[in-house]
């Protein structure tokens, strides 16, 4: 009966080095290629679009409009009446300028208009409607 003793190379971790190389490459890929997810207050499935290519840019204020008309500013769920006040609080923190509306594809235009009117009531702001950019529909 032959017993193969572990060779000197097997007893070290040298054979793991290719694995570590691959894992490091994956790690670098995800670190560089991904952007961090913004936590959402509730699930919003934004409509797809082909041609809009506006840039999301840095630190906008997010307004979420969910199914059933649920509303949130950044992480905080609010009612329509509180929306202008919430946005003024944000503006007081120096975050003026752009408001990005992330509206679910199923939301009705009536609700969208209500939200837009409320956003404009808070201060003159640039409003943008966020879409999910796809190559083709």
């Amino acid at each position: 009966m032959r017993i193969t003793l572990p060779s000197r190379a097997d007893r070290t971790d040298a054979h793991l080095i290719p694995l570590i190389n691959v894992v490091f490459l994956l790690l670098i890929f995800f670190m560089l290629a991904g952007t961090f997810k913004t936590p959402e207050p509730f699930a919003v499935e934004v409509p797809k679009s082909m041609s809009s290519d506006g840039d999301i840019g840095a630190d906008p204020t997010w307004v979420y409009v969910g199914v059933g008309g649920r509303l949130a500013v950044d992480q905080t769920e609010v009612g329509l009446a509180d929306l202008p006040r919430m946005l003024r609080v944000q503006a007081g923190e120096g975050r003026v300028g752009r408001v990005l509306i992330k509206a679910d594809a199923q939301v009705g235009a009536g609700r969208l208009f209500e939200v837009m009117t409320a956003v404009q009531a808070s201060a003159p702001q640039a409003i943008e409607l966020v879409t999910h950019h796809v190559g083709s529909r």
């Binding site: 952007t35 997810k37 679009s49 506006g54 840039d55 409003i127 999910h132």
Partner: peptide
């Protein structure tokens, strides 16, 4: 788990 590859874009209203 933390990264997202969704490409957002926006329409000015």
């Amino acid at each position: 788990l933390a990264s997202s590859f969704v490409e957002w874009s926006s329409f000015p209203l």
